[in-house]
């Protein structure tokens, strides 16, 4: 599979727009277009193979399912995972002749996505640093009440940062990189240690995504029971995800009622004291 100049340009434009600090704003870009599942549809349309791309994107999505970016610390800027990682993973999966829906196809895709994700982290911190130049211009405009410059500082100047730090690298990596990953099987045999490790890693990495979320919500190890309950619903009782959401909603509803009843009692007894 080859990526032509036009396709590489489109991918580079998407990578410029969809950072957490991307030009399209948080809701459209970071929380929608940079999600690997959504991006895989865009990439699929650009590459002309929606089906393979979505299967690859879905596998990669699991790793980044609960990506939270507290206080501007970004562990993975998804634009690289989505608009460099997915095209490369599609090329690699096809080059190796794997079924993208199989565990092996998913494993290879996830490994490539994670590898490229580190590039995204560098891109994020570089863009934020380069934006300091524009903010210097912006600060001077405030005293002069030059509204136009303030808007340019927030919306237009940062595009230069994206051009230098995201657009150009994405263009070259996707344009030249697909050839390299598509010929993976010529220099890396499937039964060799590197490939076995890569596929194994692909099956382990989605656990990190879940771990990140658990870190957010589980303060007390006892709270892990809630997670185990959800795991059991699917693993042992074979309930699908929508079903699990409804079971979860019911339990949360009861939880809410119990807390509110408890709160009501507290305030009632407080009144008796008076």
């Amino acid at each position: 599979m080859e990526i032509n100049i036009f396709q590489a340009l489109l991918l580079a434009i998407m990578a410029s727009l969809t950072s957490v600090i991307g030009a399209l704003g948080t809701t459209y870009s970071w929380y929608t277009l940079s999600r690997p599942l959504v991006a895989s549809l865009v990439v699929g349309l650009i590459l002309g193979d929606v089906k393979t791309s979505i299967m690859v994107g879905a596998a990669i999505q699991v790793v980044y399912i609960a990506l939270v970016t507290p206080g501007g610390t970004v562990s993975a800027d998804l634009r690289a995972v989505s608009y460099i990682g997915i095209p490369l993973a599609v090329a690699a999966v096809k080059g190796a002749g794997l079924n993208p829906a199989s565990a092996q196809g998913a494993g290879l895709a996830v490994s490539i996505g994670a590898l490229v994700g580190t590039v995204g982290t560098v891109m994020f911190y570089s863009t934020a640093t380069m934006n300091l130049i524009w903010q210097q211009i912006g600060w001077k405009a405030i005293d002069k009440l030059n509204y136009r410059i303030i808007y340019l500082t927030n919306f237009i100047f940062p595009l230069i940062s994206h051009l230098v730090i995201a657009f150009i690298p994405t263009f070259f990596i996707t344009y030249y990189g697909t050839d390299i990953v598509a010929n993976l099987k010529e220099w890396l045999p499937m039964d060799g240690i590197p490939m076995k490790t890569m596929f194994t890693l692909g099956s382990l990495l989605p656990a990190v995504g879940i771990g990140i979320l658990l870190k957010q919500v589980v303060q007390n190890p006892v709270d892990l029971i809630i997670f185990f309950f959800g795991f059991t619903l699917a693993a042992a009782l074979k309930i699908n995800l929508v079903g699990a959401a409804f079971v979860g909603a019911m339990i949360a509803f009861l939880n809410y009622k119990i807390i509110m009843v408890g709160a009501g009692k507290k305030s009632a007894s407080h009144e008796e004291d008076l």
Partner: peptide, 8 residues
């Protein structure tokens, strides 16, 4: 948390 458990 429950849904994430099922997802995992």
């Amino acid at each position: 948390t429950i849904v994430i458990g099922s997802l995992a």
